Amino acid sequence: MITITEVAKKAGVSPTTASYALNGRDGVKAETREKVLKVAKELNYIPNKIAQSFRNGKTRTITVITNELIERDNTFTGEFFGILSEARKQHYDVLIKLIDNREMSEHKINTIFSNRVSDGFLLLGNFPELYLKSFVDSKSCGILISSHTDEDILQVNCDGKSGIYNITKLAIKKGHKKLEYLTYQYLTEEEKLRFSGFKDAVKENKIGNAEISICGFDRESIYKTVFNCIKKGTTCFVCWNDTLAYTVINILEEMDIKIPEQVSVTGFDDIIPTTGEAILTTVHQPLFEKGRKATELLLAQINHDIEPGKKNNFFVESHIVERKSL
Rank of each mutant, 00 (worst) to 15 (best):
L84P: 00
R25V: 02
Q285G: 01
E296P: 01
Q52I: 04
E296V: 03
N126R: 14
L37A: 07
E106P: 00
L187S: 10
F315I: 08
R88F: 06
L170K: 15
I272W: 01
S162M: 06
K139S: 09
P15E: 06
G175N: 07
S114K: 15
N74Y: 04
S134M: 05
R102K: 15
S118L: 01
I164W: 02
Y165S: 07
R194M: 10
A245V: 14
A294N: 03
V117L: 13
I167Y: 04
D150H: 15
R33S: 08
K89G: 01
T295C: 08
Y20N: 07
T111L: 11
K29C: 01
R194E: 13
S114T: 11
I302A: 00
P308N: 12
E151T: 11
I320G: 07
K139A: 10
K173E: 14
K49N: 05
V156M: 06
Y186F: 15
K139D: 11
A87L: 07
T32Q: 01
T234I: 15
Q262R: 12
L299K: 04
Q90T: 10
E190H: 10
E289I: 08
L154V: 12
N209E: 14
N166F: 00
K258F: 05
N56D: 12
A294S: 15
L144K: 00
K178T: 14
K310T: 14
N209H: 03
I272M: 03
E6N: 13
C215T: 15
K89C: 03
E42A: 12
G24P: 07
N157P: 01
R219P: 01
I109E: 03
E289T: 07
K9W: 03
E180P: 00
H148C: 02
T234G: 11
R25F: 02
A11Y: 12
A171F: 03
A8L: 12
V156S: 00
E6W: 11
E322Q: 13
S134T: 04
R194F: 07
N126W: 06
S53E: 09
G233A: 11
G233E: 08
K41R: 14
G160E: 06
Y92S: 05
R25Y: 07
A8Q: 08
E79N: 01
C229M: 13
E180Q: 08
V13T: 08
I259A: 13
V263S: 05
L37W: 01
N312W: 03
N205M: 05
G82D: 06
S105Q: 08
T77N: 09
K224Q: 15
D73F: 04
L154D: 02
E261T: 09
I251D: 03
K139G: 05
K108L: 15
A40P: 05
K35A: 11
E103S: 12
A40F: 04
N48C: 01
P273H: 13
D119C: 03
R116G: 10
I4R: 14
S264A: 15
N228F: 00
F288I: 08
H176I: 07
N205T: 12
I257N: 10
L299T: 03
T17L: 14
K174W: 00
K232M: 11
I46L: 07
C229F: 06
N228A: 14
A171I: 10
G175W: 07
T16W: 04
S14R: 12
A8G: 09
L69N: 10
L98K: 10
K311G: 13
D256A: 13
V64T: 04
D200N: 10
